[in-house]
Design a protein around this nucleic acid. Structure first.
Length: 209
DNA sequence: ACACCGATATACT
DNA sequence: GTATATCGGTGTG
């Protein structure tokens, strides 16, 4: 099945998402991202441990200064600067001192919002390094970034370029579910988490809030 | 199964 | 000084 999908991706059926896709209301972008394919074509030091293609299965929306869980709730700072910029760029930050989280900036320039990529399923096998199984897991925002080798040096990267981008490969989910965002203490009443309930690669909702 | 805890850095009060 | 859009491990039932 992985082979079949990989073939599907390599055909010109795959269409790269444009800046116009990201520059829309964040909830629409978040929902539409489920089933899209995150492609990472970097080589060398930045080579992914899980292959170049991940089908996105879980995301969360963070919208504006009025969303208490959004990093922009405190107004513009050095960390959240990219969220205030144009749509279609990567917002990457370090959390808990050891993990990175990958977001796609949405909406118009000046309005801070983004979609957090929480989980994806690998569509081809990557080169497993020693101790590989653990390092190549992609069912969680921190694990996903670790598996792909995404760090703050990717903060501000243009997702419409040729390095890391997103494709529509016709892998629409059978169903899309929603629920509260995970791991936050404020803004829990909003059901801004979107996921493919049929996926086996969803992040583990722990104790949560 | 669930509960708790430490790691480890940065941003913000 | 405190909180954090996390994770891996250990302890208990």
């Amino acid at each position: 099945m992985g082979q079949h999908i990989a073939k599907k991706i390599s055909k010109r059926k795959a269409k790269k998402l444009t800046r116009a896709f990201f520059g829309r209301p964040t909830l629409k972008v978040a929902r539409d991202l489920i089933g899209k394919v995150l492609a990472d074509t970097r080589t060398g030091e930045k080579k992914s441990a899980v292959g170049r293609f991940l089908r996105i299965v879980e995301v969360e929306a963070y919208i504006g200064e009025d969303d208490p869980a959004c990093h922009a709730s405190v107004g513009p700072t050095e960390r959240n600067r990219v969220m205030y910029g144009s749509a279609g760029f990567a917002y990457v930050y370090l959390i808990y001192g050891m993990y990175h989280c990958l977001n796609f900036v949405t909406e118009r320039k000046g309005y801070p919002a983004a979609v957090l990529i929480r989980a994806g399923e690998p569509l081809e096998r990557g080169i497993q390094e020693s101790g590989g199984a653990l390092l190549s897991r992609t069912d969680g925002p921190g694990r996903l970034c670790r598996a792909l080798g995404i760090t703050r040096s990717e903060n501000g990267l243009d997702l419409t370029g040729d390095s890391i981008y997103v494709q529509d490969c016709g892998l629409e989910p059978r169903k899309i579910a929603t629920g509260p965002r995970i791991g936050i203490r404020v803004g829990k009443e909003k059901n801004w988490r979107f996921f493919d309930p049929d996926s086996k690669f969803l992040s583990k909702a722990r104790d949560s809030n």
